[in-house]
Simulated scan of single mutants.
Amino acid sequence: MLNRVKRFADKTPFSLTTPNPQEYTLFNQAILYGVLIEPYFTKIHIKHLHAIIIDGYKLFLSLLVGIVNELYGKLVNSGKEQLIWVTKEMIDVSATRIDSLLVCLMRQIVGGDFSNGNLWLCFELVSLCLSKWDCLLQEKPVVLTSALYTFLRLLADHCRVSNNLKPMMLRQMEIEFFVKMLRDQFQLCLKIGRDLFHVPF
């Protein structure tokens, strides 16, 4: 299977004719493979994806969700960076199931874990929520509610740390997100219930 995916990844540009279901699956797998392992060709791979998409990115997002749920911990750092990059791209095109992907990524953050990898993922996701605020609010506001719940839990951990620069910087971003939610989207905040009032500052 991997060899077939590689062969499809090397066939560029793709035909503009509508592929059959098997070809379409292979195209999506090949493009995802290319995105994750060939960062220097990422923009080309994404252009190919846009050219062949026929299902609102549903299959591609399903593949991404599978990667996050089953393989995230095994990915090398460059693969994780590419995963965040392509997630942002999928937000920009309002891909089907983007909310599922974002929630799955948030679930990869481990509370009480101050390792570089865990702090990096938390930083990337809170940055993403702030930078893609308008798009998420318009298309998938439930993601912002999930993010609020996630970052409030993490904020409690980060507020207990005073001698580590990374959690301290992250704490400021989490507070910024929390304040923005309270100020601009209080109705979304209410959806997390009593957890909203367990603010550690």
Rank of each mutant, 00 (worst) to 15 (best):
M1D: 01
R4S: 12
R7C: 07
K11E: 11
T12K: 15
P13T: 07
P13W: 00
S15F: 00
S15D: 03
T18I: 15
P19Y: 12
P19G: 01
N20P: 03
Y24T: 03
Y24Q: 03
L26D: 08
F27M: 09
F27P: 01
Y33S: 09
Y33I: 02
Y33D: 10
Y33A: 05
G34E: 06
V35W: 05
P39N: 05
F41S: 13
T42L: 11
K43S: 12
I44A: 04
H45R: 00
I46P: 00
I46T: 00
K47W: 05
H48N: 08
L49I: 00
H50G: 00
H50F: 04
A51V: 01
A51C: 02
Y57W: 10
K58W: 02
F60M: 11
F60Q: 09
L61T: 12
L61R: 07
L63M: 12
L64K: 07
G66C: 10
I67L: 13
V68D: 06
L71I: 04
L71Q: 14
Y72F: 15
Y72Q: 05
Y72M: 06
G73F: 05
L75D: 09
L75P: 13
N77L: 15
S78E: 15
G79F: 12
G79L: 05
E81S: 14
E81P: 04
E81D: 15
I84T: 04
V86I: 13
V86L: 09
K88D: 08
I91V: 15
S94T: 12
T96F: 07
I98G: 01
I98M: 11
D99N: 10
D99Q: 07
S100W: 00
L101N: 03
L101S: 04
L105K: 07
L105N: 07
Q108P: 01
I109Q: 01
V110L: 06
G111N: 03
G111I: 06
D113S: 11
F114G: 10
N116G: 15
G117P: 05
G117M: 00
N118W: 04
L119C: 14
C122A: 13
F123Q: 08
F123V: 05
E124W: 05
S127M: 00
S131K: 05
S131W: 02
K132H: 06
C135G: 00
C135L: 07
L137G: 04
Q138P: 01
K140F: 00
K140G: 01
P141Y: 04
P141A: 06
V142I: 10
L144I: 03
S146E: 14
F151A: 03
L152W: 06
R153W: 06
L154G: 14
A156W: 14
C159A: 01
R160M: 14
V161F: 09
N163Q: 12
N164H: 14
N164A: 10
L165C: 00
P167F: 08
M168G: 02
E174T: 00
E176H: 12
V179N: 10
K180W: 10
M181S: 05
F186L: 07
F186W: 14
K191N: 14
G193T: 11
G193N: 09
D195F: 12
L196W: 13
H198F: 06
P200A: 08
